[in-house]
Amino acid sequence: MLEIKKLKKIFNRGGINQVTAIHSLSAFIRNGDFVTVIGSNGAGKSTLLNLIAGTYLPDSGELLLAGENATRWPEHRRAAYVGRVFQNPLLGTCATMSVEENFALASRRGLRPGFRWGVTNSQRELFREKLKLLGLGLEYRLKDKVGLLSGGQRQSLTLLMATLRRPRLLLLDEHTAALDPKTAEQVLNLTRELIQEMGLTALMVTHNMKHALELGNRLIMMHQGRVILDVDGPTKAHLTIQDLLNEFSKLKGQDLTDDKMLLI
């Protein structure tokens, strides 16, 4: 589904603050893989996701989406393949527009907008049904501005919107990090259900090792722009938090005390 070949991304090239965020990274994500990605701050997880989505273009390397060379595609072109949920709950929806208008935009992800009516009655029915799944009562608030909703509600909406039109690849960038624990759990359960039911291929970045172990069939650990661990299947299923910590300290060879990665 997604093939990454020797991808490299350097920020502030030539400046004092030059940082190589991704070092010649190669990976192959199979169809149906649900990959959780962990790593400390600055490991390059978000950069990787932004490179896949096209927010950044790489300095070198190739990126193949569903067999097509998408390395130079702009963000809006890749959207035909990629559904996305951001860490910031405000980033995935338009605050000044209604719930149904946001949904209607998402229902045409990757399609050229035309002169037809923005929201149709048949769409409204569909949106209502989808929103019922959330159990937040949003099916009665189709006309409400999204800005009136809470962060958790908006993030749930974004997740539904990203999967409204089946994405070939779903990118989740720490999408529960900015939510309170209870809401985060709800959004995570919704994530699990949607990916399972629709059989989606997904990449989920998380700081939470427990979540990284519980969800998905494959786990990738990143450090300083490189993949330092890539396990799947039964190996992944038997992995424990202690294993991850050992792996991490072994490869890093540094103390972990000041690291956010220890958030469990």
């Binding site: 989505a53 927010t55 963000e75 809006h76 959207a79 990629v82 996305r84 951001f86 405000l90 980033l91 995935g92 929806t93 338009c94 605050a95 000044t96 527009m97 208008e101 209607a104 935009l105 998402a106 045409r108 992800r109 990757g110 907008p113 035309g114 002169f115 037809r116 009516w117 923005g118 929201v119």
Partner: peptide, 20 residues
């Protein structure tokens, strides 16, 4: 219209509408 809602979304949240 579809085009008009996309236009409004561009002013509201460009990142969102690009990823659509």
């Amino acid at each position: 219209t579809q085009l008009g809602t996309a236009l409004r979304a561009t002013g509201d949240n460009p990142q969102m509408i690009r990823s659509q």
